[in-house]
């Protein structure tokens, strides 16, 4: 009876050591496959001009999705990014048209984004309302404010100097792409290297445990929403710089693309999990799909279908490869 077979179960060590980067590798493979398919189907798809186009077309969504990723990791969601961007855009634009110096007008736009995020964060963290409902409410509110402020009309005639800021390029890359790349680097550092990043992961992963461990729950959540608002404002500046006008209806449904990019990149809507690298790859995947399908002259209805299927496929692959619980 004492003779017990000692089977030394092989510890699944490697699997867990690099869990998150493995997930990113999966997203990267997805991107490579999609690139390969379009490369085979669309002549000139791999031309430098087109690849830069893809990055440029992905940059606004990537910018929003980075903020969204931080909010989702904290266990929340920010549905109000589109209207936040619109409000920031029309206020900056009308200041620019009125002749306010560029830095001041841009700073005002950023301040609007921060205030919008602050309101979301306070309602979630201090009042204790559910993030989905809070940001659904502010989605309508911020949009309404933008419409009321402009009377529903676009703000036209932005100064050329302002447009040049965001339309310039550096080392052959559009400035917008470089700005978003820098933002991504900062977000990556925040998540991997700062206490705030650890707090985000802890608050989203187990709020009660984080509280007992002394994590400042409310401050962490509010900061996440403020970053999301700030990045929505940055996306707005990039867009109005590109268009030369600010419409109060700008940014319609942006929140959905941002959530999709974060989810494809491995963020869990349950909170506590997400990756900056993954989100960027997710945004580029969505951008590539749109670019490739447009070059193939696929009707927009089918583009929408393809986007939907990509999201579902990413989630299914996630589920299957992760297995149970």
């Amino acid at each position: 009876m004492t003779d017990v077979t000692e089977h030394t179960a092989a510890r699944p060590r490697a699997e867990f050591l690099h869990r998150f980067s493995l997930r990113d590798a999966g997203t990267l493979i997805g991107l490579v496959v999609i690139l390969a398919v379009f490369g085979a189907l669309v002549p000139g798809f791999f031309a430098e001009r087109n690849l830069i186009n893809i990055l440029q077309q992905s940059s606004i969504n990537a910018c929003l999705a980075l903020g969204m990723t931080l909010v989702i990791i904290s266990g929340g969601i920010d549905l109000s990014v589109g209207p936040t961007a619109a409000l920031s855009a029309v206020i900056s634009a009308s200041m620019l048209v009125a002749g306010v110096p560029f830095p001041l007008a841009i700073a005002a736009g950023f301040a609007i984004g921060l205030v919008c995020g602050l309101l979301n964060g306070v309602l979630v963290a201090y009042v204790g309302l559910q993030p989905f409902i809070v940001t659904l409410g502010t989605l309508s509110t911020y949009r309404a404010l933008a419409l009321i402020y402009t009377g529903g009309n676009p703000v036209l005639g932005l100064p050329a100097g302002f447009r040049a800021i965001f339309n310039g390029s550096l080392f052959g890359l559009p400035l917008a792409v470089i700005i978003v790349a820098v933002v991504a680097l900062i977000a990556w550092i925040i998540l991997k290297k700062t206490p705030f990043g650890e707090y985000l992961l802890a608050v989203g992963g187990n709020e009660e445990a984080a509280y007992i461990a002394g994590v400042p729950i409310a401050r962490t959540k509010i900061a996440a929403y403020m970053i999301s608002g700030l990045l929505a404002a940055l996306a707005a500046q990039i867009l109005i710089g590109r268009l030369g006008a600010a419409e109060p209806i700008l940014g319609n449904l942006w929140e959905l693309d941002a959530i999709a990019a974060a989810a494809i990149g491995g963020a869990s809507l349950m909170g506590g999990k997400g990756s900056v690298v993954g989100t960027i790859l997710g945004a580029v995947i969505l951008g590539t799909m749109r670019n490739g399908l447009t070059l193939m002259n696929v009707q927009s209805f089918y583009q929408l279908l393809a986007t939907g299927l990509i999201i579902l496929a990413a989630m299914l692959i996630d589920r299957v490869t992760r297995g149970r619980g």
Binding site: P195, E198, Y199, L201, A202, G205, N206, E208, A209, A210, I212, A213, G214, V215, G272, K273
Partner: peptide, 19 residues
């Protein structure tokens, strides 16, 4: 419910209170 952050590593869980 109140102790661990399940998805995070042992190191991260340990360091949480002394960031």
């Amino acid at each position: 419910r109140e102790g661990i952050v399940p998805l995070r590593s042992i190191s991260s869980n340990m360091a949480l209170a002394s960031m």
